[in-house]
Simulated assay, not measured.
Amino acid sequence: MSAWLSIKEAAARSGFSTKTLYRAIAAGELRAKKVRSRWRIAVHDLEAWLLPRPTVPRPAVVRVAAPPETGSQAALRRIEGKRR
């Protein structure tokens, strides 16, 4: 078996579509080499790309309610709202 795979071979081996592999190459997530007009993916690069990556939990989003408008700004917004 060769150390390099075509996009079709890599898709069959990984279970992903060829379109997904092209997107990963374009995004820089999957290393590949262009030989003439065809992309080639090293077996070890494909296997490294398939390994699960650790996920980082997203921080909780805290939504703060805006304070009620008072004074001239609130009056101006009410006037502008009535004009429309």
Score class of each variant (00 low, 15 high):
19 K>F: 09
54 P>N: 07
52 P>Y: 09
22 Y>E: 13
66 A>H: 10
18 T>I: 06
73 Q>D: 14
56 V>F: 13
10 A>G: 00
64 V>H: 12
46 L>C: 05
39 W>T: 00
37 S>V: 15
16 F>N: 06
65 A>T: 15
69 E>W: 15
33 K>D: 05
75 A>E: 15
57 P>L: 13
16 F>R: 09
55 T>I: 10
67 P>V: 11
15 G>F: 05
41 I>L: 03
57 P>W: 13
21 L>I: 05
9 E>M: 08
6 S>P: 02
64 V>C: 12
62 V>E: 03
28 G>A: 06
19 K>E: 07
3 A>L: 15
53 R>Y: 10
9 E>I: 02
2 S>C: 10
62 V>L: 11
19 K>H: 12
60 A>S: 05
73 Q>I: 12
32 A>G: 02
13 R>G: 00
41 I>S: 00
35 V>W: 12
21 L>P: 08
54 P>W: 09
10 A>D: 01
33 K>N: 06
33 K>M: 10
24 A>G: 04
41 I>Y: 01
4 W>G: 13
52 P>T: 04
51 L>C: 09
78 R>L: 14
31 R>E: 10
49 W>M: 05
47 E>S: 04
52 P>W: 09
18 T>R: 06
45 D>K: 01
39 W>S: 03
81 G>M: 12
58 R>D: 03
12 A>W: 01
7 I>R: 01
36 R>K: 13
18 T>W: 00
19 K>C: 06
38 R>P: 08
72 S>L: 15
28 G>Y: 01
27 A>G: 05
27 A>I: 09
44 H>C: 08
46 L>N: 02
50 L>T: 10
34 K>Y: 03
14 S>W: 04
37 S>R: 15
74 A>E: 06
23 R>E: 06
79 I>V: 12
21 L>Y: 00
38 R>F: 09
56 V>W: 11
78 R>V: 13
8 K>D: 08
56 V>C: 11
60 A>M: 09
50 L>K: 14
17 S>P: 05
27 A>C: 06
50 L>A: 02
53 R>A: 02
14 S>Q: 03
46 L>R: 06
32 A>S: 05
12 A>C: 02
27 A>H: 05
7 I>Y: 04
21 L>H: 05
28 G>H: 03
57 P>N: 10
60 A>G: 00
9 E>G: 02
6 S>T: 15
40 R>E: 04
75 A>S: 14
46 L>D: 02
41 I>V: 14
5 L>S: 01
7 I>C: 00
63 R>Q: 14
66 A>G: 14
8 K>W: 12
29 E>I: 04
78 R>Q: 12
75 A>Q: 15
29 E>R: 12
77 R>S: 05
3 A>S: 11
20 T>Y: 06
7 I>F: 03
5 L>V: 01
48 A>W: 01
17 S>Q: 13
57 P>M: 10
52 P>L: 07
34 K>Q: 07
54 P>L: 06
56 V>Q: 14
51 L>E: 14
4 W>I: 05
73 Q>T: 11
8 K>C: 06
75 A>M: 15
67 P>E: 15
